[in-house]
Design a protein around this nucleic acid. Structure first.
Lengths: 188, 188
DNA sequence: GGCTATCTAACGATCGTTAGGTTGATTGGA
DNA sequence: TCCAATCAACCTAACGATCGTTAGATAGCC
């Protein structure tokens, strides 16, 4: 049976755990129990925790890139796409109060194995590149300043997610995003 | 001799470690080695890791509150004080690429002992209260919206610090703050 | 008979924590 | 004044839990 792919199940469970407890909090025994196997069996699919962590982070930014692409395709114009950007960070909060995997790992960053570090940085790059492209298209920022603006939006939205999580309050996230809009950081 | 107060030395070293590796990464053996004593000796000054962590976080927001008070007192008007706010988060970045203790702990939040959680939340409250007061005084936001604005500034600045840290680049922090200013989130 | 996917069992490291001992300064009473 | 008791501050040594990881066995499938 190909439908019950253990590798995929491990990846999915590991992502959920990492979003709630970080790379450090992602231990093989609990992870395996989540999947319904034993810890040692994970090594049949991933050679080490570092490689699993890198695979998780890689899959995470790939999925994020796809979600962003979906938003741009669904939107009639770049401004509408930009307005929908905060959605991508809102989802995790609403589901078990999790946060962006890479906000977590940005905190743990110095203690992360190198392969994981690489993928975490790519996540930020993917977000900034998408924002940059749409900010340019929407002429939201002066020419040559769209990348700076993109980075600021990414940082601010990450911070909002982090703050809302520590209060376990999605509506706080919405309120913060709302202020970003009224002050002009995000399009209204 | 009262000058070499071990309790204070432990508190200072623990703060530095927590800012670099989080609550989880703050282990008694390394911490004790930093201070120049053995791990067991820490228990003479703090009853448990949870209590030490709470003491660290408490001292941290107390110091932050004092630093903010100093800024308001030194500033000729509330707008100038608000302009200086990002300084308080910049300092840690420039010294060993550390981040705000409480950004770190906001990520780890769910796995924190309750006494630590309490102090971490107070840190955010202290910052928001200070910002709220000065935003009102400076009439930066419409009446009744200064607290919302205060929270947004706190979240955005935290996010900027987190992002700059993962690139180990203080100038990225400066650039992000600069965008917050030109877009109007922070006073220009 | 190999191959895939899983298991049990254990290793060594690290962690928070505890028990109990040592030292040196302080202090109160004869 | 001197001695005994006290106490703070530190130590060594270890316990038990948890962790990533490995060796080796087992069961089903092609």
């Amino acid at each position: 049976m190909v439908t019950t792919n253990s590798r995929e199940a491990i990846l999915a469970a590991a992502t959920r755990i990492a979003q709630a407890h970080g790379y450090d909090g992602m231990n093989f025994r609990d992870l395996a129990a989540d999947v319904g196997i034993k810890a040692a069996s994970i090594y049949h699919h991933f050679p080490s925790k570092a490689e699993l962590g890198a695979a998780v982070a890689k899959r995470y930014w790939e999925d994020s890139a796809a979600a962003l692409e979906k938003i741009s395709n669904e939107s009639s114009d770049p401004l509408e796409a930009l307005r929908r950007y905060p959605e991508t960070f809102r989802w995790a909060l609403q589901n078990d109060n999790r946060i962006c995997l890479c906000s977590f790992m940005a905190a743990e960053f110095d203690d992360l194995p190198d392969p994981v570090k690489r993928e975490v940085l790519i996540f930020a790059d993917v977000n900034v590149a998408w924002l940059d492209k749409l900010i340019s298209a929407a002429k939201l920022a002066p020419p040559g300043e769209s990348e700076r603006r993109a980075r600021a939006i990414f940082a601010a939205v990450s911070g909002a997610q982090l703050m809302a999580r520590s209060r376990a309050d999605v509506s706080l996230y919405d309120a913060l995003i709302d202020v970003y809009r009224t002050t002009g950081l995000l399009p209204a």
